[in-house]
Design a protein around this nucleic acid. Sequence first.
DNA 1: AGCCAGGCCCTCC
DNA 2: GGAGGGCCTGGC
Length: 287
Amino acid sequence: MFVPIEQPLDLSNTLTSGQAFRWRPDGEWFEGVVFANIVRLRRRPGGIELRCAPDDEALIAPLLGDYLGLRDDLEAIYASIATDDLIKAAIARYRGMRVLRQEPWECLISFICSPVSNVPRISRNVEDICENFGRRITMGDRVRSRFPTPEELAEAGEKRLRGLGLGFRAASVAAAARSVADGQIDLVPLRESSYDEALDALTALVGVGDKVANCVLLFSLDKPEAFPVDVHVSNVLRESYLRGSEAKISTKAMRLWAQEHFGRYAGYANQYLFHGRRQLRINAGRT
DNA sequence: AGCCAGGCCCTCC
DNA sequence: GGAGGGCCTGGC
């Protein structure tokens, strides 16, 4: 099914910029699992081509624009954050890259898997979680698995998660699954909450600090001002934005500084700076 | 062969 | 409150 798109969209950089971990390039196509479907996408002039299973394409197509962040007015966002040459260069290079609007539960668990790790390993951890505890889905001869429900993952338990190679993150994943399954935290309503309220709710979870929480807020909970400060973004800020005396402030202080500096769409600035720095390192032979 | 990686938490000051 | 050290595992 062809899905027409009016707004600019760089599908490749959107799906491979470290926001989500289940998209696999396959020639011109990208294959992922969203909305309990195997979804295959290919960029075409004027839109994207969609294949999915088991649901009908007409059912998934309306959800796609939402997931891909096409509701965001990119030009307005660029005008808001393009206040210096570094950001402007990143925008020029990755114009059309979007901040995804993911399913909050999967996004939370994915980023709990992220501390002191790397994208290939996080991707493998998430995929292993799905294959072991999620329901299998097929599309022709292709087999993938849904992301497990909170109940299914809570049932798995820390020990089996460690067995998948999650390391010390296993305890946090198990605890978060239990909290969500028991209703101690309700993720989707946090989309309606203020940034500060949602941040507090997330950081109450074990294994969720300021950085992981800001990833979940930005990539799934409609908080475009969220600004995750990881080691790469921290380096960019210290090298190009902060004065000498400011360079040794804490990561949370950096986050507050950046939100003040970049404004209500600070999260977009974050994503462009992050992706730009990562691409540089990859081109330099490091991951 | 080590070294270190998309942080978090706990201890101690 | 904030600085410092330990943590699973694996990829280089």
